[in-house]
Computed example of a mutant assay.
Amino acid sequence: MKLPESAEWALHSVTALAQVPSEAVSARRLAEHFGLPAPYLSKQLALLVRAGVLSASTGPRGGFRLARSASSLTLLDVVEAIGGSADPYTCHEIRQQGRGAAPPEECIEPCLLAQKMREAYLAWRESLRAVVISELVGSLSDEVVARTRASLTRTAG
């Protein structure tokens, strides 16, 4: 499965915002922090707001912050906000086509390949659901957190 590049942007942005929980951070500041184009990052942040991962406020002190605690947000929450939750594998039942076509009575259940692809997709989702944003932030070095806070807080240049 290939996720859009914006999934990486969203994951890093959410993790960065979790490091400055008392601060609303503008899209511009986040974009500068990561060296990303602000207009495109803003679109991804809006998707995160719609999904309830982030909240947004306007005005001079406005910006983005986590909509829920970092301990209740998972990688799956962020990935689904950006890439959706649809199973990437579609079975078109080609086993019922061509010279080697299986008879319909042998095709009542999904084929073994479709079953295995579904199991793999569900396992991938569970592995993302098991990773909580607060655990990621807790595993960062003090230097990384200090650099992120210095870059994203209002006192930063």
Rank of each mutant, 00 (worst) to 15 (best):
K2D: 12
S6G: 02
A7V: 01
E8W: 08
L11N: 06
L11F: 13
H12P: 00
L17W: 08
L17R: 14
L17A: 09
V20Y: 08
V20E: 14
V20P: 12
E23T: 12
A24S: 12
V25Y: 09
S26T: 15
A27E: 09
A27K: 06
R28Q: 11
L30S: 06
A31G: 05
H33R: 14
F34G: 10
F34D: 04
P37M: 04
P37L: 12
P39F: 01
K43E: 12
K43C: 01
Q44Y: 11
L45C: 10
L47A: 13
V49Y: 03
G52Y: 04
V53T: 09
V53E: 00
L54T: 09
L54W: 02
S55L: 08
S55Y: 02
A56H: 11
A56D: 09
T58L: 02
G59K: 11
G59D: 11
P60F: 07
R61L: 10
R61Q: 11
G62M: 09
F64I: 06
R65I: 02
R65V: 01
R65N: 03
L66K: 10
L66S: 02
L66M: 03
A67S: 11
R68Q: 14
R68A: 10
S69K: 01
S69C: 03
S69W: 04
S71F: 15
S72D: 13
T74R: 12
V78F: 00
V78Y: 00
V79P: 04
V79N: 08
A81G: 04
I82P: 02
G83E: 11
G83V: 00
G84R: 00
G84W: 00
G84H: 00
S85T: 01
D87G: 00
P88S: 02
E93G: 07
E93T: 12
R95A: 06
Q97H: 12
R99W: 07
R99G: 08
R99H: 04
G100M: 03
A101N: 10
A102W: 11
P103H: 10
E106S: 10
P110D: 09
P110T: 13
P110R: 12
L112F: 09
L113D: 14
Q115K: 07
Q115H: 10
K116S: 03
K116L: 10
E119M: 02
E119Y: 00
E119C: 00
E119T: 00
E119R: 08
E119Q: 10
Y121P: 06
L122A: 14
L122E: 14
R125C: 08
R125L: 03
E126T: 07
S127D: 05
L128W: 04
A130E: 07
I133V: 15
I133Y: 01
E135G: 15
L136V: 15
S139F: 00
S139N: 13
L140N: 09
S141K: 04
S141Q: 07
E143C: 05
E143K: 13
A146F: 05
R147K: 13
R147I: 01
R149N: 05
L152A: 14
T153K: 14
R154Q: 14
T155E: 15
T155G: 14
T155N: 11
A156D: 15
